[in-house]
Design a protein around this nucleic acid. Sequence first.
RNA 1: GGGCUCGUGGUCUAGUGGUUAUGACGCUUCCCUUACAAGGAAGAGAUCGGUGGUUCGACUCCGCCCGAGCCCA
Length: 870
Amino acid sequence: MPSGEYDPETVEANWQERWVDEDLYAFPESAVDPDTVFSIDTPPPTVSGSLHWGHVYGSILQDFVARFKRMRGKEVYYPFGYDDNGIASELLTEDELGIKHQDYERREFQKLCREVTSKYEAEFTEKMQRIGTSIDWNQTYQTISPEVQRVSQLSFVDLYEQDRQYRQRAPAIWCPECETAISQVETEDDEQGSHFHDIEFDVVDSEESFVISTTRPELLPACVSVFVHPDDDENQHLVGQEAEIPIFGQQVPILEDERVDLETGTGLVMCCTFGDQTDIEWYQAHDLPLRIAIDESGTMTDVAGEYSGLSSDEAREEIVADLEDEGALLDKRAITHTVNVHERCGTSVEFLVKDQWYIKLLDKREEYLEAGEEMDWYPEKMFTRYKNWIEGLQWDWAISRQRSSGIPFPVWYCGECEHVVVADREDLPVDPLSDDPPVDTCPECGHDEFVAEDDVFDTWATSSLTPLINAGWDWNPETEEMELERDELYPFDMRPQGHDIISFWLFHTVVKCYEHTGEVPFDSVMINGMVLDENREKMSKSVGNIVSPDEVLDKFPVDAARYWAAGSAVGDDLPYQEKGLVAGEKLIRKLWNASKLVESLTEDAPDEFDHDDLKAIDRWLLASLDREIEFVTEKLDNREFSKARDRLRSFFWHTFCDDYLEIAKQRLREADDPSAAYTLQTVHRRFVRLFAPILAHVTEELWHDMYDGESVHAQSWPEPLGLDADVEAGETAMAVVGALRKYKSDAQLSMNASIDEVEVYGTIDGFEGDISGVMHVDSLTSTDEEPPIESVTSGIDLDYSIVGPEYGSKVPDIEAALAQDDYELVGDELHVAGVELGPDAFEVNEERTYSGEGEFVETEGALVIVKNEN
RNA sequence: GGGCUCGUGGUCUAGUGGUUAUGACGCUUCCCUUACAAGGAAGAGAUCGGUGGUUCGACUCCGCCCGAGCCCA
């Protein structure tokens, strides 16, 4: 029985513990009907980092859906993944144990990683449980586990056999500091100081020469062509000729391409293997040869002739000096320009040519776009991000990473003919560096020595498999097919995702799962926005405006945070604001206090009551709640949490507490009133369930205290009762109560002061007693008759939705005539400005005055005359 | 530099062609009415970022500009 003040600190912790202990949210073990399953594929957070407020926000939104769907009769599959595979965990392990991963075999190092991260996993679990989500803690996985490694490698084998992957000598972005290849998304721009060198090039078989400005003279030996912009009239005549490279002497074609930047340098550009991204594009577009002058350690190769063996920095100095000697260096000046750097270490990247594995994307752009279209997007507008990403794709997806730790490619190459040997599925996971290939000799050439692939997968190659991990995707040796152990989960009903990572996490997941199963992995996607600080600015460590979950939850109940999280349209960014949480706290308190009152009033409430015997106001309240239920259900179905929350709060607070409860209280205290008691309890039970997905803890406490001892989260969602009621009379009655409150307020009377006499001109049939009871009216009469007041026509209001389309440009004339009172009312028609408007098109505005005894109050649907001696 | 999203009282937010713009927080005044004063009642407060256009009519649609965020270069 709810009594005293609500104590969220104790109550919330208690329920969180019990929910986990009692496995309340456990997904059924046995196979279930896919039609009644609601499966969620949650993107696993990095556990080596700390749980931040953005995680909390995203998780709460997921939980709203999970709890709502559960009450709607679904078996909800709500798993949790710990992402501990990746550089962050590796660095953490090295730090904590004071080791270097290079000193260990991969498997050993991964084992150490698992040990270190398990501590962080436990911490993460605790924090996730503290926000009261209904995750099924029996359904968890670690991305570093051997099982997930197996899925990753199975994915590779499957895509390889489907010919969706290829290995190609291709440009790779290389970080010389980290000695690893990185993806395009791991680079960022940086302004750096450098020097422009103006170098003179001779045109072959001509007296002519031209000048190129370059920041990278050490790339002269790598030069394969010179480019001119198509709009560059001055240099147009050079196109088609050849240029001779100073010092090195190679002769290269002069070509035209619109990617030449006319603003920088001389408008003529040399293309090398590879100075920047544009060089790579030119290499691909113009089918240019490769001249690799710098290797991956930054050392000059044989291509550089006498400079070979020097570091690229040394080579630059010597080449510049030699150019000067030859008279080819015309000028050298300091500039700042934008370079590509590795986002982790800030080192400017190199472009190398390496053997890399790629997943094909470009050839199926249309299909992947259609896959995106097949999913329901909440909100819809976020689909454009997915669409734009696909339309802008210029590369296939490079999945090779030249790192010594990570999940290895299950591949060996023949030492003789480079034939690719892929591991057997039964043997996965394997590490080619430690394990033998599945064949003794090369099936192609019979050679018996193999070279292990030493690259590892890009972590996204694993992160993009979560639906398959959750659904138990594996090889069935009997049928020789890939199968889903838990077929009923797939495709997943919902995938939550932050809007900042739609382009790679979501996209890559769709692509991979689609290729593996032939099905789009998600029926729907729910996109969450970012959490901003109080000033609507992005949270960042460097600015120091990070909000930590512990800090917030020490101060506020979780339910208050949950109320706050429901406060914005899904997909929109949401500022963290304490007043939002304070508002939540107030609602929790209101719900608690109202429940105490309901409890005290409904001790004798009948479980059953013939709806035909309901009093008007009870019938009215139940019918009004029906409409609210329909609204709230629809909004939650559409992930419009904010609308559901606000409407429910407002109906509960104002209609139920302020209007109905005040009346019911009086009725029940004055006499036995089974109709009121029954209604009060019925409505209250419904409110507790309606609030349950959002205010998960306080509703649970109330349900247990007041009702059947089961969890509110295991109850079914309220269905409308389908009662008929005179809704209009009820609303008029409430408006009359409002008018009487206003009268008392204006007269500075207390709300329980009595009023002698009230006359209501309007329909309030059946509500008279309720009004007089709650407002302490000694004598209340109501009538449908015309009130004893004088009406003066004060103006005409047009209904523009009718007048506008009908009269178009004549509307201003009509308005002008009305403004000058130049019109005539003929019967139910309005004659104005030469047109005749029907009764639907306008409304006569009347000013009412009352000169009789007492005071006249006008309200929605009724006119009220108050006569009071006091 | 490109794409997408957002801009509404002091603050947060609803509203996507119909003229009196929603609600909450805060503010002012009044009211201790036996669930709740962290409550109730009343009230003030917005030319809907700027500008130009389409339309009888624009917060809403279109162009440009400004500001913020995200992604990409």
